[in-house]
Design a protein around this nucleic acid. Structure first.
Lengths: 296, 296
DNA sequence: ATCGATCGATACCGTGAGGGCATCGCGTGG
DNA sequence: CCACGCGATGCCCTCACGGTATCGATCGAT
């Protein structure tokens, strides 16, 4: 093994002091072993680093070059432990965050802002995944945090991030497309476009309960909201969609609010594995437990 | 003393192999001391770098950060010896080159080109100094190479870089200002502007010999050629200047060539101290001794 | 020229950090 | 439940490295 850090530190000290005795004192050691350190260094580099002029020593040109390298290395060595500790307690690091297409419209921006406030030096890595894939990624530690809809498997911890009610999306030519006030689900006489029980189990179940299983299952099924809007637009039926999607203005689709009697809220949760060792996640979770206000 | 290079290398090996046994093998050692190295590392950092999962190990987030730092350090460590050796044999480094104002016009560009060809990765640092200051700087190792005029003190080595003859500079209104062919020094009836015997000993002596000491000493003395041209322009007399200065077109000054009988060449030499330990200089000198052709 | 001071190099000795061998504890897979 | 694999631990030994004493050379002062 050639080149030890002690040799490098010794070399830097001698180079700066231009004097073995003073350098040894600075290093809290005596001069002879320091001399040997430098000799060993020069031997393993096969290069003279100092001109011994009887009266003190002077760096050679090669020594000056080596000194620069040593300074860079020692500077890195200096900051490495602190940087590592910051990463260990989650002050720095990377959070891999997954989200659903729906979540992206409603809350992703605010959520990222909140994360940025709580863990300022942490980098967020984003990935769009449907909820089932998110749970798999969370379990496999491919992702640190997911924005998902219920039901959330018991193995995960979660926090309610957003709650909103459902509104009715109707095709442009539909009788309910004109008008302004709330409508009742009983006014909808034609088919619903339903959520896929596999891809969007949560919305499927809620909507099925709202309109009655018998009427709900008759039309197309879709798992992603943009697909549903396309189907509504094509006149295939009405759909129940989260209110925040209204911000997504789609040509040929009108929205109507529901009677308070029929209104039903759907939720979006931040979700993580308690086994996840990512300190940045742990720090964020800790912060959330102390103050669950999302705008704090 | 915390953190040894062995620990860092051991850590990188384990991080890359995700396995203490294989890492130890790669490092040509056995597993137990490697385990202790990592333990010591984690203890001095006060950070867990690996998750021990019974089945192999996995880097923590902090470990990943530390790994990056280690890689950077070890990469520096890898290249440092080679860079130092290159500096030691003069392949890289800095050459501090001094030149006179005169030299700058005539040969500096070609000279730097030649240096660049012979020592491609060497940086040149330039400085304008009059010849006596150059010798002092060369002796004090403040400068590696000087472009000077004779006489050159015996302690230095030198190489003829440029030789040119002198031409006559006359004021615009002077009788000799018109005409094209060579003139004889005997046609000059008025005063000469002479070189200072201190600042430009060489040119002073040559010019004095050319025109005769008695006639030479009568007018102004200047040490720098631009000053002389200003004096000529002011009509204070004629001057003998190196031919290369003709390239410097000065309003109100005309140049006449001298009869071959009167022509006299002046030389410029590259000059260095044989004691100078700068390897870049040594390499250049070596190259010059093998092939003194300046355009090679 | 000589002597003394200063500074780096060398000789020798002792200790402890670090590596090897043997073994343990534990978690996993057959 | 057993056997295997892997990291952790205990013990021993060696040698690398630091300390003390001293040498040798160079430079400055007398």
């Amino acid at each position: 093994m050639d080149l030890s850090l002690q040799q490098l530190k010794g070399f830097v000290a001698v180079a700066e002091e231009q004097h073995f005795g003073r350098a040894a004192e600075r290093l809290s050691m005596t001069q002879p072993p320091l001399t040997r350190q430098i000799q060993g260094l020069e031997r393993s580099l096969a290069v003279s680093l100092f001109d011994r002029t009887g009266r003190g020593v002077r760096l050679t040109a090669a020594g000056a070059v080596f000194l620069e390298h040593c300074r860079r290395m020692l500077a890195l060595l200096e900051i490495a432990p602190e940087a590592t500790r910051r990463a260990a307690d989650g002050q720095t690091g990377t959070l891999r965050i997954a989200f659903t297409a729906i979540g992206a419209y409603a809350v992703l921006a605010d959520f990222l802002t909140m994360v940025g406030r709580r863990t300022p030096a942490v980098t967020a890595e984003l990935m769009e995944l449907v909820s089932p894939d998110q749970f798999e990624a969370l379990a496999g530690l491919k992702v640190d945090l997911g924005l998902v809809r219920p039901p959330i498997p018991e193995q995960f911890e979660s926090l309610l991030v957003h709650s909103e009610d459902l509104v009715l999306a109707v095709p442009a030519g539909h009788p309910l497309a004109v008008g302004d006030g709330p409508v009742s689900l009983s006014e909808v006489t034609d088919d619903y476009i339903g959520y896929s029980p596999e891809g969007s189990r949560y919305l499927h179940d809620i909507c099925a309960a709202m309109v009655g299983m018998n009427r709900y299952a008759v039309s197309q099924l879709a798992s992603q909201v943009p697909t549903m809007l396309a189907l509504v637009r094509a006149g295939l039926g009405c759909a129940l969609i989260p209110r925040s999607i209204m911000a997504m203005r789609v040509q040929g689709v009108s929205y109507r609010e529901l009677d308070s009697a029929d209104a039903h809220s759907v939720t979006l949760h931040a979700c993580w594995s308690p086994d996840n060792p990512n300190p940045a996640l742990q720090r964020l979770v800790e912060s959330l437990q102390q103050n669950p206000q999302l705008d704090a």
